[in-house]
Design a protein around this nucleic acid. Structure first.
Lengths: 139, 139
DNA sequence: CGCCTTATTGCAAATCTTTGCAACAAGAAA
DNA sequence: TTTCTTGTTGCAAAGATTTGCAATAAGGCG
């Protein structure tokens, strides 16, 4: 987990306030390997701060997404929330073993340029989750 | 909307049965420009067949997705359901005007081969929704 | 440090979505 | 057409997510 002061600064930069609830949600995601579902996050939080309400966790997650401290990405119907790190990236989600492999954003640059050239479309790819089979699960 | 007999045949090919509920859900999606949210579909169905239960609409949608008659794709947190047409494709969703532009699946082949070559990952891209700005909205 | 503004929270109720189970009905076979 | 099997539905209840509102408290200011 990054420095608390730094996170608080980024929250305030968005006109928001840093609260214990927002802090513990960030801690939860960090503790849960950097990415987790809303429910996993709530369970983790509730285990050490039972007073925190479920609705608050959902609202905090939405706020953190809008503040760009956390990024949502959809895998197989379930929405996962991930800490926004230093560099942008996407995900390869294996349908066999469930493993989530991050790949650098520039791996998709070839696609972005192709879309721009052929459709005049300026793609804004953020945390794309691509499902498929990883090397191991392909046997 | 395709021919009812043809749809019924495809449903039975999956070991399923064609029911009035499944038929009207397919009609609803067709009437709603070929893609709609679960709630939009339920509203449309409820307006002409009030006896159809909400739970049934959700179950029918899931069945149709598994039967490959309908494909789900996520845009901006909302799940949309789309009739599966003749050829596979993806979507360019403009964040400016909201326009949804279908593009042929092979437009992403370059990406699929790159992922396979560089990560040994066999991507299964189905109805990807790529957000960004279309030619017009880029001014 | 204490006050003030207003963003944020907790609570409860509203919505959206899923699930268990008994009754129903699609479609194959007689 | 009638019967039979079993996939589907409706209902109700559980679970997931959002929202309105009054009370709380973060953080700027004096």
């Amino acid at each position: 987990m990054d420095d608390y002061q730094e996170l608080a600064r980024r929250v305030r930069a968005q006109g928001g306030r840093m609260t214990p609830q927002r802090q513990i949600v960030l801690e939860a995601i960090s503790a849960l390997d950097g990415h987790a579902s809303a429910n996993e996050i709530y369970e983790w939080v509730a285990a050490r701060a039972p007073a925190v309400n479920r609705a608050t966790v959902y609202r905090v997650l939405r706020f953190l997404c809008e503040a760009n401290l956390v990024a949502p990405f959809a895998t197989d119907g379930v929405m996962l929330y991930e800490l926004v790190g230093a560099r942008p990236h996407h995900h390869l989600v294996c349908r066999g073993c469930g493993h989530v492999e991050p790949i650098p954003a520039q791996a998709l640059d070839v696609l972005v340029t192709a879309l721009c050239r052929e459709h005049g479309f300026q793609a804004e790819l953020r945390h794309l989750a691509i499902t498929g089979l990883c090397r191991e699960c392909r046997q």
